[in-house]
Amino acid sequence: MSRRFDVSVVGLYILDVLGRPVTAIPDGGNVDFIEEIRLTVAGTAGGTVVDLAKLGLNCQAVGAVGSDEKADFVINRMQQFGIDCTHMARLDGVETSATILNVRPNGERPALHCRGASDHFDVSDDMLGDVLDCRFFHLGGTGLLAKLDGAPTARLLKAAQEAGCVTTWDLVGAGPDTWQFVEPLLPHIDYFIPSIEEAEILSGITGVEENIQFFQSRGVKCPVLTLGADGSMVAMGDERIHVGVYDISVVDTTGCGDAFTAGFIAGLADGRSLEEAAHLGTASASLVASGLGSDAGIVDRAQTEAAMAAWRA
């Protein structure tokens, strides 16, 4: 069946304001000087859709921005990458979701976040036909999507599967209350792509294999756990595929998980094996880690493939 989009990316869209390197916040009204400040489209949906577009996939963004100058930047920037923004709602009276990130010299990034418009959007019935006109349906941002979290997300993922879409999922900021939003989603997720830390918070248990079995037993087809410096683990049935990290110099880890997701989806869209999809995810995340912001490093598919080949040589 022909689909209009390779990927529909639904969920959390954020404007990130990043500065580096930040070693401390100046006292009082004093000023310190840093090397770099950037604005980027970010979030578990926004960062992913930008990276997917850079990797050559035809994408639509589905989410919300506010009625402010931040919204103009987010929409305009995505359109520059060829992303369809027809279903990016502009909501009156609320701010665009945004984060200020003070990036430390070691790549850590303490954040200040304004929840904003992403808490106020939903996917209405009249949008479903367009939103599900895709090969892959990615939902990112569970936990910071107040109106969509829980049963509405479960219905949306179920509808995506019934429409023949491959469903992929990621969350943000797992906490003690997040499990109630996540549990109803699990039977409708083909590729479940959290970090091991997020998975452990959700499950309440520790260990990679233990979490794989926990989520498989609750309906997830393929858990894909990112393991930080230990790479990633992909689990399909009894098969376990571990892909290690590449030897890179880390500048900023903002958006690395979103980049991994984008590369992994791009690999699946190519028809690659799970191992090769995970390598493309790792290459995408490595490029993003080499610069400031969630869209740093990745230029296009050819450059990403070349970098991956060099790292694996």
Results as ranks from 00 to 15, higher is better:
residue 13 Y to Q: 05
residue 13 Y to L: 13
residue 13 Y to I: 09
residue 13 Y to E: 05
residue 13 Y to V: 09
residue 14 I to H: 10
residue 14 I to G: 01
residue 15 L to M: 12
residue 15 L to P: 02
residue 15 L to A: 06
residue 16 D to R: 01
residue 16 D to T: 02
residue 17 V to P: 03
residue 17 V to I: 14
residue 17 V to R: 15
residue 18 L to S: 03
residue 18 L to D: 00
residue 19 G to M: 12
residue 19 G to I: 08
residue 19 G to V: 11
residue 19 G to R: 04
residue 20 R to A: 13
residue 20 R to E: 10
residue 20 R to I: 11
residue 20 R to P: 06
residue 21 P to Y: 09
residue 22 V to W: 00
residue 22 V to T: 10
residue 22 V to G: 09
residue 23 T to Y: 09
residue 23 T to E: 15
residue 23 T to S: 14
residue 23 T to L: 09
residue 23 T to C: 09
residue 24 A to I: 08
residue 25 I to H: 12
residue 25 I to D: 08
residue 26 P to H: 07
residue 26 P to G: 03
residue 26 P to I: 05
residue 26 P to W: 10
residue 26 P to Y: 09
residue 26 P to M: 03
residue 26 P to K: 04
residue 27 D to N: 11
residue 27 D to Y: 14
residue 28 G to N: 11
residue 29 G to V: 12
residue 30 N to W: 11
residue 30 N to P: 00
residue 30 N to G: 12
residue 31 V to S: 15
residue 31 V to L: 13
residue 31 V to N: 13
residue 31 V to P: 06
residue 32 D to I: 15
residue 34 I to V: 15
residue 34 I to M: 13
residue 35 E to W: 06
residue 35 E to K: 13
residue 36 E to P: 07
residue 36 E to Y: 09
residue 36 E to T: 11
residue 37 I to H: 11
residue 37 I to Y: 12
residue 37 I to M: 15
residue 37 I to W: 10
residue 38 R to K: 15
residue 38 R to Q: 11
residue 38 R to I: 13
residue 38 R to S: 11
residue 39 L to A: 07
residue 39 L to R: 14
residue 39 L to D: 04
residue 39 L to W: 14
residue 40 T to W: 00
residue 40 T to C: 11
residue 40 T to K: 06
residue 40 T to E: 10
residue 42 A to I: 00
residue 42 A to Q: 03
residue 42 A to S: 14
residue 43 G to M: 00
residue 43 G to H: 04
residue 43 G to A: 06
residue 43 G to E: 00
residue 44 T to W: 03
residue 45 A to I: 05
residue 45 A to N: 06
residue 45 A to D: 07
residue 45 A to V: 06
residue 45 A to Q: 03
residue 46 G to Y: 00
residue 46 G to I: 00
residue 47 G to L: 02
residue 47 G to P: 08
residue 47 G to D: 05
residue 48 T to W: 00
residue 48 T to R: 02
residue 48 T to D: 06
residue 48 T to N: 11
residue 49 V to G: 01
residue 49 V to M: 02
residue 50 V to M: 04
residue 50 V to T: 10
residue 51 D to N: 15
residue 51 D to V: 12
residue 51 D to H: 05
residue 51 D to K: 04
residue 52 L to Y: 04
residue 53 A to F: 02
residue 53 A to N: 03
residue 54 K to G: 03
residue 54 K to M: 07
residue 54 K to A: 04
residue 55 L to H: 04
residue 55 L to N: 01
residue 55 L to Q: 02
residue 55 L to V: 04
residue 55 L to K: 01
residue 56 G to Q: 00
residue 56 G to A: 02
residue 56 G to W: 02
residue 56 G to K: 00
residue 57 L to R: 11
residue 57 L to G: 02
residue 57 L to F: 03
residue 57 L to T: 04
residue 57 L to S: 08
residue 58 N to K: 15
residue 59 C to T: 10
residue 59 C to Q: 00
residue 59 C to Y: 00
residue 59 C to G: 05
residue 59 C to L: 01
residue 60 Q to W: 06
residue 61 A to W: 03
residue 61 A to M: 06
residue 61 A to S: 09
residue 62 V to M: 05
residue 62 V to A: 03
residue 62 V to F: 04
residue 62 V to W: 01
residue 62 V to G: 07
